[in-house]
Computed example of a mutant assay.
Amino acid sequence: MSKQRNQPRKKKWFQRKRIWIPLLFIALLFLGNSSYLAKEPEGEPFLLAHRGMAQTFHMENITNGTCTAERIYPPEHPHLENTIPSMQAAFDAGADVVELDVQWTKDNRFAVFHDWTLDCRTNGTGVTRDYTLAELQQLDIGYHYTADEGKTFPFRGKGIGMMPSLDDVLQTFPNHSLLIHIKSNDPLEGKALADVLATLPAKRLAQLSVYGGDEPIETLKQQLPQLRVMSIATMKSCLIPYIAAGWSGYVPQACAHTQLHIPDQIAPWLWGWPNRFMARMEAKDTRVILVAGSGEVSQGFDVPNDLKRVPESFTGGIWTNRIDLIGPAFHENVEK
């Protein structure tokens, strides 16, 4: 009889065990990845100015083939993207890092210019790499910018000779941090850029990072392993294993000494966001840049109110297309 009486009790105990063990695991999982009990990272976030101080444009129905120069907002400042004056203005406005685009030229130089063709922005035509650097520097890079569907062109005639080379930028800003964007997927561009950057001292190289297509970035990484780089492939090799096993605190070796661009709509789904995630990445010498939206286009934190979406404990980079607005607002908040 006693055995029969104990059987229901054992059954209930096993049923409770099946419930409490998963609940305990979930609780430990939450505590191990919660920022509430984690120490806040030390340091302040930094500002990354996309293309320097640039003219912005509306994003509706934008595609990779959209000519953004033909849809700019009415200009609020006199600068054109990817020029020396725009970069200087960005640093003056509070940028810690300036992002710039490079295109390979016919004479194996790097011009600082966004598009792989010339027709959208300049008074030239054809493919950028079919021209020498000297030929490109004779163009008017502000020729086709318009805010009223072609009725007026506020920068026409003002962009002649304004396209710098990468060498010009490195010489002009020898002590500033730069993020260089290779706009192609040509591995030869990765080799060419590695040859340029290999001449720089280690201290200067530590102030630079490069992102772009998978193939040039892989080539660059092989030749200059000490350089911080990023591509879609490097992002996946870090984040996919982290999403799978990061709940345990595991950080893949692929994350080490790299750069991650994390959309703020996706960031909260990463294990340990923000405090534990940032601490884990900093331990791997990984730089985290927070971009706006879902990551589909180059959205940034572009009006002061956007800064409210940045966690107070975040210590990575904040991507902005409007450093002229965000820089003063950000530094005012820091001083408070």
Rank of each mutant, 00 (worst) to 15 (best):
P8D: 05
P8E: 05
K11I: 15
K12A: 14
W13C: 03
F14L: 15
K17W: 11
W20H: 11
L28N: 07
F30C: 09
P41G: 07
E42W: 11
G43L: 11
F46E: 07
R51I: 07
M59N: 10
E60H: 05
E60T: 10
N61T: 11
N61W: 04
N61C: 06
N61A: 14
T63W: 08
T63I: 03
G65S: 05
T66S: 11
I72Q: 03
H79S: 09
T83C: 01
P85R: 01
A90C: 10
A90T: 08
Q103V: 01
T105N: 13
T105Q: 07
K106H: 13
N108R: 07
F113Y: 08
H114V: 03
W116S: 14
W116E: 15
R121N: 01
T125C: 12
V127P: 02
V127I: 15
T128Y: 08
T128M: 02
A134C: 08
E135W: 04
L136N: 08
Q137S: 04
I141Q: 11
Y145L: 11
K151S: 08
T152H: 14
F153V: 06
G159N: 05
I160Q: 12
I160V: 14
M162S: 12
P164L: 03
S165R: 00
D168W: 02
P174I: 10
N175Q: 13
H176D: 13
H176P: 02
H176T: 07
L179K: 10
I182E: 01
S184T: 15
K191P: 00
L193W: 00
A194N: 12
D195R: 06
D195Y: 00
A198E: 06
T199P: 04
R204W: 07
L205T: 01
G213S: 11
I217R: 00
E218L: 13
L220W: 13
K221L: 01
Q222Y: 13
P225K: 08
S237P: 02
Y242I: 01
G246A: 09
W247A: 09
Y250M: 11
P252I: 07
C255S: 01
I262S: 02
P263Y: 04
D264T: 06
W269P: 00
W271N: 06
W273A: 09
P274Y: 04
P274W: 01
R276G: 04
M278G: 03
A279Y: 00
A279F: 00
R280Q: 08
M281T: 05
E282Q: 15
D285Q: 15
D285R: 15
R287T: 15
V297N: 05
V297Q: 11
V297A: 09
S298A: 15
Q299V: 00
D306E: 03
V310S: 09
P311I: 07
P311N: 10
F314C: 08
F314E: 14
G317V: 02
G317R: 00
I318E: 04
W319R: 07
P328I: 05
V334E: 13
